[in-house]
Design a protein around this nucleic acid. Structure first.
Ligand SMILES: [Mn+2]
Ligand SMILES: [Mn+2]
Ligand SMILES: [Zn+2]
Ligand SMILES: [Zn+2]
Lengths: 140, 140
DNA sequence: CAAAAAATGCAATTTTGTTGCAACTAAACT
DNA sequence: AGTTTAGTTGCAACAAAATTGCATTTTTTG
């Protein structure tokens, strides 16, 4: 993606333009799947670990990235489609490949009616993680 | 729950009876909601950290506990209903309260047909985490 | 271009999780 | 019951992951 576009996105979310933010955002967009801190550390050795940690938090706080629930023990982030500092809303589904272990956001909203909740529970949002075999692993 | 019952459960899963295991299992059963390592550490200061870590892994491996995907950054465990070392199967749903942050297993299976997956993706399993307000927080 | 505000890098620290091993304990076996 | 065995515990050391404070640098504003 063009540098000017990346700049626009970061600015739109109320953050200053810096090299690290441009690089990280660009990588997320190009890579398409979810990324962990470790992925970024490997990819961007030139940046200090602390800066990468802070980039992830800033992006999360300002609605560029969202955490994806996982039990791997590592926080995993995916690109937000349409969030801001004020409003986060993630009703899309996630797919975790059992072979390559990679997580990705599936750009398709899911609509499940919840009727089996016990009394006095209020449902507001939902995370769905589908596990299976991804396209790449499937064709190998 | 009675000591003799707890012993039976632990034995049934192929583990030896020890004080720590009795206490941890008993606490899970009584507490009803999911617990993190930190919760246990606070609750059972008398046991060494390492022992608690190993108790959690042993219980997970032998089908007494299952990890619940979460974005808190801490592994969160819930009681299994009917698992063993050989077969783990968790088709129930999870509920995370946005007020008290607590996770719990909802003892109700959910059946969602997945039809919106992209081509060449194979779905095998699914995790559903419903977010909202739990009974307790709702009534306060 | 100068001033103000925010981000970065580095070092130190804290928190979280793992490993090896000796001492101990539960279960199995006379 | 006493002995053997195999598994469990606690401690110390270690390793990995994440956070904090602060001086320096960079971005933005005017
Ligand atoms: Mn997503
Ligand atoms: Mn559960
Ligand atoms: Zn895959
Ligand atoms: Zn609650």
């Amino acid at each position: 993606m063009k540098y000017s576009e990346l700049k626009k996105i970061i600015k739109r979310h109320g953050l200053r333009i810096t090299d690290c933010r441009i690089d990280v955002l660009s990588y997320f967009i190009q890579y398409k799947k979810a990324l962990t801190f470790k992925n970024l550390e490997d990819q961007f050795e030139a940046y200090d670990r602390v800066t990468l940690y802070r980039t992830l938090s800033a992006f999360e706080e300002h609605g560029l990235l969202h955490k994806i629930p996982d039990d791997s023990g590592f926080a995993t982030y995916g690109l937000c489609q349409d969030c801001s500092t004020e409003a986060h809303h993630h009703n899309h589904i996630h797919f975790k490949c059992l072979k390559c272990e990679q997580l990705e956001c599936i750009d398709d909203t899911i609509n499940i009616s919840i009727d089996s909740l016990p009394k006095n529970y209020i449902a507001q949002d939902m995370d769905v993680i589908i596990k299976g075999v991804c396209q790449q692993c499937n064709s190998n």
